[in-house]
Design a protein around this nucleic acid. Sequence first.
DNA 1: GTCTTATCCGGGATGACCCT
DNA 2: AGGGTCATCCCGGATAAGAC
Length: 213
Amino acid sequence: MRLTVVGVDLAGAESRPTGICVLRGLRVEVREVKEDEEIMREARVNKADLVAIDAPLSLPRGRRSLEERSPHHLRLCDRELLTRRIKFFPVTLGPMRKLTARGMRLKDALEREGFKVIEVYPGGAQDVLGIPRKGRGKEKLLEGLRGLGLHELSAEASDHELDAATAAVVGALFLLSLHEAYGDPEEGQIIMPRTGLSRNEVYSALRELDADC
DNA sequence: GTCTTATCCGGGATGACCCT
DNA sequence: AGGGTCATCCCGGATAAGAC
């Protein structure tokens, strides 16, 4: 089985760096880009089987737009994060609105070209996988990711690139059905690693996606 | 012991500020 | 003038602290 996952740590604005990770088995390539068109190009040239985006890709049910004030702030998947005590920002919070709008646009554009797109949350996934979030220090996150067996992940990688790598790992777990989908399919789901997954299981899973192994 | 209030936390954009 | 760094704001929930 040889599958390619593109992980995207999306920034709210095209002027800010967006992290990209191309994951093939245990091999990763990371870089930063700015514009949506560059993200689209990454998906195309790498023939992505799946694009995993770190950004909200849907609105809470009952909410018609991000701008209009309404009591609907949380999606079912967000509530599920809450009950699991995973911290996150609601889609209606200031800058998150921009990020959500961009995420939804990008998802549409990718799906129009036939790409499969999922929403992921690297910070939460790192919690579930038991590796430190970047807030605890970039080096610790890097160590954690290397501990999963990822090759060629440079110490020079930015935190956006490390989050993109995490997004890609979650995407790979999704392709192997080692995931949990929080929330309602109609409203929009967040894909997370299956609870209790050991690092070894993740490692073996990623190896499975690598044709050379 | 229970209810209420205050504080903190989180990711990212933005604008102010400082240094060169 | 330009670039880099820092504080602030956005909103809602959780937790801690306070009042009764």
